[in-house]
Simulated scan of single mutants.
Amino acid sequence: MNLTFEGFLKGYCRELSGQQSLSFRKLVEQATTVAPRVAEPLFLLALAQGKAEYVLGLSEGSWMEESYRGVLSLYGQAGSLASLCTEDKLPNRYANVWHAYRGVKEKPAADRRVNALMRKRTLEALEESGVTRYGICRA
C-alpha cells in the first residue's frame, strides 16, 4: 500500500466534511458551520497543495484564522510538510491528523506482526495439547 499523506488528507477531508468535493471554498464553509473537525486536515491539505494562502484568505474572520496563521508560520520555519508534522511544535489537533495517517499507513505491517505472533502461539498451544491441526479443523 503506497498511501501518501496528501492522498490520506483528501480522503479524510471528504469523510469529515460529509461531501465528495475537495473544493477549498466548500470545505472552509463546512468547517466554519457544521463540520469543525475538518479544519485541521483541510489546512494541512492546503499546505500540501500549495494553497495555504488561499485557504487562509477564505477563513478570514473565522475561528480558524489564528490557528492557520500559527501553523503557516511553523511551516515556514520547518520548510516541508513532512518535517513540520514530525516535529513536536505542531499543535495537538494537527499532530493528531499526522498520527491518524501514520496509523493507517502502518496498519498492514502491524497486522502482519500480530498474525505472526498469533500463529506462533497457536502452534505452541497445539503442540502442548497434543492435538493436530486436522483434529482442530475436524472438531
Rank of each mutant, 00 (worst) to 15 (best):
A95L: 03
L72S: 15
L58R: 04
L81M: 11
R37A: 08
L81D: 06
G130W: 01
S21C: 10
R102F: 05
G7C: 07
K26H: 00
L47N: 04
R14Y: 04
F5V: 10
K51H: 14
V38E: 02
A100L: 10
R93C: 09
E124G: 02
E60A: 10
K10W: 00
E6D: 12
E40A: 09
L44A: 13
P91W: 14
A52R: 14
A100E: 15
P41W: 03
H99G: 07
R25S: 09
N96C: 06
Y12Q: 05
K10S: 07
E106H: 12
L16P: 02
H99A: 14
K10F: 04
E124D: 13
D111P: 10
A46H: 10
Y134H: 03
G11Q: 10
E53S: 13
Q49S: 13
S21P: 03
E124N: 03
E53H: 10
E6S: 04
A95M: 04
L47D: 01
L3W: 03
L27M: 05
R121Y: 14
A139L: 10
G76Y: 05
R121L: 15
G50E: 05
Q77I: 11
A82C: 09
A52K: 15
D88H: 09
V55I: 10
I136P: 11
S62W: 01
R138W: 07
S62R: 00
Y68M: 12
T33C: 00
R112C: 10
F5S: 11
D111R: 15
C85Y: 07
P36W: 06
R112E: 15
Q49H: 08
G76I: 09
R113F: 14
A82F: 14
Y134E: 01
G61C: 08
L90N: 08
E124K: 01
F24W: 10
E40H: 13
C13V: 00
Q77R: 14
T33Y: 00
S21M: 09
M118V: 12
Y68D: 12
L74K: 02
E66H: 05
